[in-house]
Simulated assay, not measured.
Amino acid sequence: MTQKIDAYTHLSPPGFLDFLEGLSGSPHVFRKLFANTPTLVDTDQRLRQMDKYGIDSNVVVPLPWIEGIRGVYDDPALSVKAARLCNDGLRMVTLAHPGRFHGVALLPSAAGPQQMVSELERSVEELGLAGGVLFFGPTVKPPDHPDYEPLYQKAEQLDVPLWLHPCRPGSHADYPEEKFSKYLIWQTLGWVTDSSVAMARLVFSGVFQRYPDLKLITHHHGALIPTFAKRMQACYESFEECSGIDLQTPIEQPYIDHFKKFYCDTASLGFEPATIQLACDFFGVERVLFGSDSPMDSRSGEIFTPETDRTVAALKLTKAERQSIYGGNMLQLLSRGRKKKQKKAAARTAPQRPVRRAAGRR
């Protein structure tokens, strides 16, 4: 029987939004969204919806993110406090519903490398969370910033994935002379652009060369990369060969092939088999994860969950390939981290062999 694991959903731990509002002293921009999306905060309603659509478990990326509140994001102590509160809340959710939710840790990305590493390690090894999430966009530091280097190294050592998520706010204008983004451009087009930019920065900075076993999960079916892969490669070749531009990268041509080292979800926000088929063809079925972005639709998950399921069911795949997307690929990612933790625990509890003393010594 095919196990269905929704690898990219959202959930807000109990009291987390209230905590952030208390720190900022004003209503959070997500407050109305939360009021109209009950399955974002109510796990009982969420479980009923999952059962309705045959979803065995949800991987939950927490909302809201720290990067959305500058006063918290820029304050190392507050950002660490917020991340710990959020992740402790996720732990409570996973304990209350074993096997149904897999939490993804919020990380204090502006607090500094050691704080990020410590919180990822605590979240994985003490709280049992599945990995961590990083939010990227034009208002926060880029993913190839040196501060992230220890985090990528630690994620590889722990053998857990890092989920990537765009975070461009509506207050980031489309043009310098304007005060905010118009017509929801920041969300509809800005987010997929920002995800693509983050992927390019990671690829060309050589992150996968330094950490070949690092698992990075991109949102929204790999954003623009599968659609514009041929354009990107043609531009790389043309500008290097004809214009003499040096991209100053440690990776080798063809550059586009390095983008295939990411994992991607199937969140297309509607019935889009052609779009997801393109992602499968680019990344390979073994790197595509069933993910809906639920419950972030206008009906609190009643659109994204079934439409994403219908999309995956319509793909031109073998039964085994479809099962891999629905749950097999995510199970492998989840189990790898668990196996490493089990080995460490076994090593700590293994009986110590007596030390042999050399002849003639006491």
Rank of each mutant, 00 (worst) to 15 (best):
Q3G: 01
I5C: 03
L11S: 04
G22C: 08
R31A: 08
A35Q: 14
D44F: 02
D44T: 05
Q45L: 15
M50R: 02
V59E: 01
E67D: 10
E67C: 04
R70F: 09
G71I: 13
A83L: 00
M92Y: 02
T94K: 02
V104R: 09
G112L: 00
Q115L: 13
E119A: 08
R122A: 12
G131E: 05
V133R: 05
F136K: 12
K141D: 03
P143A: 14
D147W: 07
K154C: 15
Q157H: 09
V160W: 13
P161N: 10
P169W: 00
L184M: 15
I185A: 06
T188G: 01
L189W: 06
V192W: 02
S196D: 03
S196Y: 06
V197T: 14
A198Y: 08
A198N: 09
F204R: 02
S205M: 10
D213W: 01
I217L: 13
K230H: 06
R231L: 09
A234M: 08
C235S: 14
I245D: 00
I245K: 10
I251A: 01
I256A: 02
I256Q: 07
H258T: 01
K261V: 11
T266C: 14
T266D: 04
Q277K: 03
F282D: 00
R287Q: 09
L289Q: 05
G291C: 05
S292A: 11
G301S: 01
G301D: 00
I303Y: 14
A313W: 01
L317R: 12
K319A: 11
I325N: 07
M330I: 03
S335V: 07
R336S: 09
K339S: 14
R361D: 09
R361T: 15
R362E: 05
